[in-house]
Design a protein around this nucleic acid. Sequence first.
DNA 1: CTTGGAAAGTCAACAAGGCTGACATAAAAT
DNA 2: ATTTTATGTCAGCCTTGTTGACTTTCCAAG
Lengths: 168, 168
Amino acid sequence: MATANTGQGGESLLFLTDEQVRKGIEAMFFAYRGFTADPDRILQDMDYGRAHHRAIHFIHRSPGTTVNNLLSILGVTKQSLNRVLRTLIEDGLVESKVGRVDRRERHLTLTEKGAGLERALSDAQRARMRAAYRAAGPQAVQGFRQVLEAMMDPELRRQFQTLKEAGA
Amino acid sequence: MATANTGQGGESLLFLTDEQVRKGIEAMFFAYRGFTADPDRILQDMDYGRAHHRAIHFIHRSPGTTVNNLLSILGVTKQSLNRVLRTLIEDGLVESKVGRVDRRERHLTLTEKGAGLERALSDAQRARMRAAYRAAGPQAVQGFRQVLEAMMDPELRRQFQTLKEAGA
DNA sequence: CTTGGAAAGTCAACAAGGCTGACATAAAAT
DNA sequence: ATTTTATGTCAGCCTTGTTGACTTTCCAAG
């Protein structure tokens, strides 16, 4: 591996040069492109974009979630989300139901059709992820997740961890 | 760590459930937000965006590069890049020189001012990266980079590796 | 030498998806 | 009864992607 720090495996991080950290930054940039490439390809054929993917992903993940909830996860404005949501509802991928206990809320779920698209998207993305995991090995995966988690803003990390627990 | 696969450290990847892979996907999503957050904040005050950052980064990294070269690294259309480049040139952050051997080419370099902004941006980004590295530990960093590299499209991986060697 | 094509770059116009601000409605909370 | 909260909508702006049309330059074939 040409990546090794100065030849060895685990010397002090204080010895990571700016150069080496920069490589990590560029790796992140290129990897994110790969990360989104497969879903992007699928979405392009329909009239959707990455924003629709994100909405679908998190609705799938937390069925019955409210608009407000989704907003805080996605970190966009309600106007922005609403545009995306409106098209998804019009196209019959997402269902919006008035809350029973609090009738101001709209609870969002995927329809059969929406679930179908979700599956197509996440299958593609998972396949790549799994291939990367397999290529890198279990140790690497552990480290990958640790660094990613450490890279998040504290507030986002909290949200991520909440999601993580909920999903388990 | 609540992240551990099923408690242990390194069982076979064949046992990674969809659920667990999905967590990796979400980690990537949230981490990327953190990854870009600091530069985004700096850029917001000026009239620039992430596209300007990317251009500045890679011009800094390969001074004298041509527009075409930059294009293939960034993966956008030349028209898209051109708009960004034009503002950077107008604002005196980037210098564009007609090629001496092939006068169709423009060779791009950062001015003093451009280098200043580059430093501010990359200092911020590196600080976060370094903090994440420190928090996760050297082993984790190794794994992080391995997974990222495995996640790239083959073509992008080649470009990344070329850059890596050039920078060393 | 000329000419035709390819390559590099520029200009114009459009679309997606962010953003803010203002406003409407319904329901909940005080 | 009033205020606050959750949601939706309209209008308009910005960044950054896109495609199409165009210029300048180079090079190679005639």
